[in-house]
């Protein structure tokens, strides 16, 4: 299976420069990084160091000013907006800091949304979501609307939604930033478990020490450039 050989993400000298009131903000400056399948990587760095921008570049939400981005071997810079949407649907899961869920859908409906968009049959969809809900301790909350879930529960549903379609990678932008420490730990445990058992690739942006501690690879950004890249066994 050649697909397994290509890295989940690769960027080549990728730049993002924002024009702001005649001033240039270099949010990402020539980042080259390779993330293999199954990695659990944290992008760390102070606020404004370019973590979010880099994640958005990788997820195809922002187009680079220069350089290239490949996800599962596909060159994002050559894709149309429609192709990018399709790539996100099939290859990328997102978890944002908060307000991830669609308020009008139940937890179950939120979690199965990507499968619904992919046209997966009812039975299979329900089975897959149910299985993940059980695994992540969300059983019994299927029919709740996001407004009736705690912040931690909402983030778990968001993580289930991000992994349910078995994407090449999951991008999580400060997923624990709005959670108390217990919920943060629980969420982290859950993602680690999913990473271990399903082999889902996770890439975080974070400045949460707990997340950095428990990641297996820590990439440090300062002013849009990588200043350190350490791998370790936890």
């Amino acid at each position: 299976m050649t697909e397994e050989d290509v890295p989940a993400v690769r960027t080549g000298e990728v730049w993002k420069v924002f024009e702001q009131e005649a001033e240039e903000v270099k949010a990402v400056q020539g980042v080259s990084i390779k993330i293999e399948r199954g990695e659990f990587t944290a992008l760390a760095g102070p606020s404004g160091s370019g973590k979010t921008t880099l994640l958005n570049l990788i997820g195809g939400l922002t187009r680079p000013t220069r350089g290239r981005v490949w996800v599962a071997g596909h060159d994002l810079t050559e894709m149309s907006n429609i192709q990018l949407a399709r790539l996100r649907l099939e290859q990328v899961g997102f978890v944002f800091q908060a307000y991830n869920l669609l308020p009008v859908l139940t937890a179950m409906e939120n979690a199965e949304f990507p499968l619904l968009l992919q046209g997966v049959e009812d039975a299979e969809r329900h089975e897959r979501v149910k299985e993940l809900f059980e695994r992540t301790g969300l059983s019994g909350l299927e029919d709740r609307r996001p407004g009736k879930l705690s912040g931690g529960q909402q983030q778990r549903v968001a993580v289930v939604r991000a992994v349910v379609a078995r994407p090449a990678l999951v991008l999580a932008d400060e997923p624990t930033a709005n959670l108390d420490s217990r919920s943060s730990e629980a969420l982290l445990d859950m993602m680690l478990e999913l990473n271990r058992e399903l082999g889902t690739t996770f890439v975080f942006a974070t400045h949460d020490a707990r997340v950095m501690e428990r990641s297996r690879r820590l990439v440090s950004l300062v002013d849009g450039s990588i200043v350190a890249d350490e791998s370790r066994e936890s």
Binding site: G59, L61, N81, I82, A85, R86, R88, L89, E90, F94, F96, Y99, N100, L101, L102, F113, P114, L117, R161
Partner: peptide, 9 residues
Amino acid sequence: VLQALGLTP
């Protein structure tokens, strides 16, 4: 969120 999930514009 919808577009991040893969909805086209």
